Amino acid sequence: MAELAGIGVDWYVRMEQGRTVSPSDVTFDALARALRLGAADSAHLRALARGGDGAAFSIEPVPPTIVRLVQSYAHPAYVTGRRWDLLAWNDAAADVLCFDRLADIDRNLLVFMFATPLARDLFGAAWHDEARRMIALFRATHDLWADDPAFIELVERLKSSSTDFADGWNRHDVRIGVSGEKVLHHPVRGALRYTYATFQSNDDAALKLAIYTPV
């Protein structure tokens, strides 16, 4: 592999052994080509090499300005943290996504998806595709915090609650978040089609704002 990537054997051995190395962007690109990684896996490799910030996980506070922004939006909008905890949402998200029906301990997008019946009703026939997408997206974040007790607890809960999550988690797929379109099934208004996008907060890079716009 070192020869394919055009890098030193000693350096590559140190990397495989988990010893401290400081690869350059050129080295990353060479490794990605040698391993035939796609864009998502290449980005994941870079993130793993950089590592997390070393601090123990804690629930992120949401600045009041972001809360007001979310509440002012007429369509579903919400904020998640690094572990995908649901930190803030508006009335439209409560109505369409049923977030207000979640117990405090269940206010996490993955718990919502895999450990409650709400999401299966919401996504209908598209639930399995959405579930696989979410697992692959979360994997990219999780692996930076894989040894943190809060992340371990969440993953163990999901694996014990859902065979779909357990099976998907064992695939080790990684995806990059992109905007797209979803059809959500409201119990009164029927099928609702939205485009969606997520944005990173300048206040805290762990905070993600998701907004839905009707099509």
Rank of each mutant, 00 (worst) to 15 (best):
E3I: 10
E3L: 13
E3S: 13
A5D: 04
A5M: 04
A5H: 04
G8M: 06
D10S: 15
W11G: 01
V13P: 07
R19D: 05
T20G: 09
T20W: 07
V21N: 13
S22G: 11
S22Y: 10
S24Q: 02
S24A: 02
D25V: 07
L31Y: 00
L37W: 02
L37H: 00
A40M: 02
D41G: 04
S42D: 08
A43N: 11
L48H: 04
G51H: 04
D53V: 02
D53E: 05
A55M: 06
E60T: 10
P63N: 00
I66C: 06
I66S: 06
V67Y: 01
R68A: 15
L69S: 00
L69V: 00
L69D: 00
A74D: 12
P76T: 08
A77F: 04
A77S: 14
A77H: 07
A77E: 06
G81F: 01
L86S: 03
A88M: 03
A93C: 13
A94R: 15
D95W: 13
D95R: 14
V96F: 01
V96N: 03
F99H: 02
D100R: 14
D100Y: 10
R101I: 05
R101P: 05
A103S: 14
R107W: 10
R107D: 13
N108R: 08
N108G: 13
L109Q: 06
L109G: 00
L110T: 00
V111E: 02
T116P: 09
T116H: 09
P117H: 12
P117Q: 09
P117D: 14
A119N: 15
A119K: 03
R120I: 09
R120K: 13
R120G: 08
F123D: 06
W127H: 07
H128L: 12
E130R: 00
E130A: 03
M134W: 03
M134L: 15
F138W: 06
A140E: 05
A140K: 04
T141M: 08
T141Q: 15
D143Y: 01
L144R: 05
L144N: 05
L144D: 09
W145G: 02
D147W: 03
D147G: 08
D147L: 05
A150N: 03
F151S: 09
F151T: 07
L154W: 02
E156N: 15
R157Q: 09
R157K: 04
S160M: 14
S160Q: 14
T163P: 10
D164Y: 08
F165C: 06
A166K: 12
D167Y: 10
G168M: 00
W169M: 01
H172V: 10
D173M: 02
D173S: 01
V178T: 14
G180N: 03
E181I: 06
K182M: 11
A191S: 14
A191F: 07
A191V: 08
L192R: 11
R193E: 13
T195F: 07
A197Y: 05
F199D: 10
D203H: 14
L207T: 00
K208Y: 10
K208W: 12
L209Y: 07
L209D: 12
I211S: 06
I211Y: 05
T213Y: 12
P214M: 05
P214K: 06
